[in-house]
Design a protein around this nucleic acid. Sequence first.
DNA 1: GTTTAGCAATCAAAAAGCAAGAGTGCTAAA
DNA 2: TTTAGCACTCTTGCTTTTTGATTGCTAAAC
Lengths: 334, 334
Amino acid sequence: MLEERKKKILQAIIDEYINTAEPVSSGVIEKKYRLGCSSATIRNEMVELEKAGYLEKPHTSSGRVPSAKGYRFYVDELIKEDDISLQEIKYIQSKLAIKVNEIEELTRIATSTLSEVTHYTSVAIGPRANFQNIEEVKFVLLGNRMLMAVILTDTGIVKETIIKFDEDITEEQVNTLNIIFNNKLKGKPLGEIDKPLEEYIFSEMNYSLNVIKPIMQQLDRVINEDSNLYLEGANKSFELPEFKSLEVARNFINLIDTKEVMRDLLNTGFAKDINVYIGDENNNEQLKDFSIITFKHRYQNKDLGTIGIIGPKRMDYSKVISVMKYISKKLNGK
Amino acid sequence: MLEERKKKILQAIIDEYINTAEPVSSGVIEKKYRLGCSSATIRNEMVELEKAGYLEKPHTSSGRVPSAKGYRFYVDELIKEDDISLQEIKYIQSKLAIKVNEIEELTRIATSTLSEVTHYTSVAIGPRANFQNIEEVKFVLLGNRMLMAVILTDTGIVKETIIKFDEDITEEQVNTLNIIFNNKLKGKPLGEIDKPLEEYIFSEMNYSLNVIKPIMQQLDRVINEDSNLYLEGANKSFELPEFKSLEVARNFINLIDTKEVMRDLLNTGFAKDINVYIGDENNNEQLKDFSIITFKHRYQNKDLGTIGIIGPKRMDYSKVISVMKYISKKLNGK
DNA sequence: GTTTAGCAATCAAAAAGCAAGAGTGCTAAA
DNA sequence: TTTAGCACTCTTGCTTTTTGATTGCTAAAC
């Protein structure tokens, strides 16, 4: 554990670095933060904080910069609670007050609001389909050879997909499909539409395999497909000084451009309400320059996806976490 | 008009510059392109080409670089036809052979294929809804208080939207809705769902305004909403030498991040099959460093959206245009 | 024992200087 | 009209110098 004064100094250094993006010297801490001791004392403490691994020096005669361990300590112990202004609260309220009919729309609004308020790049993904339960299945005939399958889940998510046929489909066939599929699927998790079920349905239906086969294929596809990824405010990151480095900028673009990595990031570990990943804590070399903060979009304890922020390690953690907590609360109460 | 030799030299310079991204000197043209005259002669011609506005010089003692006018001439007169390899043709064929049920899926595949083959960033947008004609409208009841409206248009595009109610909806009401809306809307362009129609429907329906009002609102919204924008291979651009300049990189990110600009770009002027916008030809300061090449995704002369490439002005126009022509042809034949 | 003033040592970043090389434009000859 | 030849220009890359910020250490003060 750190003594009180060390904590204060560490906090001051990280706060200052988050603000300025420049290595922090003992001098500015003395002058700006008035901790009641001289720069020499601060220097002595800095040496120890560096030995303990909380700070780093870009080179011998420069100020100090927080290390990943430093940020981690900052996030876990030194964070400012409710670092959110009345104005920001008002803005978020106004944005989330809009009535929406679809959950994806709400996720989208929340994501862009998060980016607008924090000035970082935000990102979101829909819920994983497999764990949702089927509430209702409906087939709709469009023209003579096109069928739309609509699945309503218990989270209120609606998935729809289109199946095209080489032969005409009758209204009667559609009715049978509706009855059989609903009988068999109501209440089941989406992930359970599988082979045995397929065979059962084959045996129940007395007409052409040409009809059932494409339906099962397409249902399978729509259930297993990755949900949409939203990205908002990528340009905001490019205003930050760390993006002056071509390498950092390129890494960032590569990161947000490879959807699989983003999906993995948004779909991992949700022990806490807000999850903070600093740099390559999660062993991904690609992330060494960035931090990710995520939270689950929940409504009545149901998972409606994940929303997150991606930015430089020198992120305004207090602000981001405060804003996220507020948005999360608002979404849950909606 | 330019004499033959000037054309040859201009072409050589632009080809070389597209390859190397370095200002081109009279020396390399003499050595690499063997036009049967000395570097001094080439220098003399270069002076005239510069006077005529086709070339520029970054500074007095450097080689020449194509101007926007130079690129324009190159695209209009000097382009290589069918600059596409057998291998690339094979690859495109294999990608487009996949059977899809939804047109958006096809657009997405075509867009990513375009990016993969050309190594530039590609972008696409769906068709403008207003000009499509309604083929069929179906309302589907989901649960008791949720209605899905499905609109099938003559281009095969399916639009669906969800409407939530504060009161229960009966199957009977749904049937009436289906009959009335189909009667009134079949064959009409989507853009015509407007006020007078709304009033007509009000007068026809003998039940609650609470039901019709939200439906009209939501239909209105879904019809007028901008179609989805796809972006593929943003990271590819960042491998190019012009993106070493922080300013260029930032402009690019700003460009692709502001969706309105992208929409405008993809929705303008389609006099030709393939449209080339070089730099700020279209008077958009933001585009000064970039070129855009677009084509309409058509099937049986119906507009299914626009697909394009965005890259530096120093783009491999021949390759991009050849690949686009091929993909366009393939899509149309599908 | 802890804190602090004072100061030499360190090192990056900016500025300045310099040599090399590439490319042009011009002139005069072919 | 073309080309060889050459002086002139200007970038690029490199080295050197200067500047200034910041540290770490020592010794005195508290």
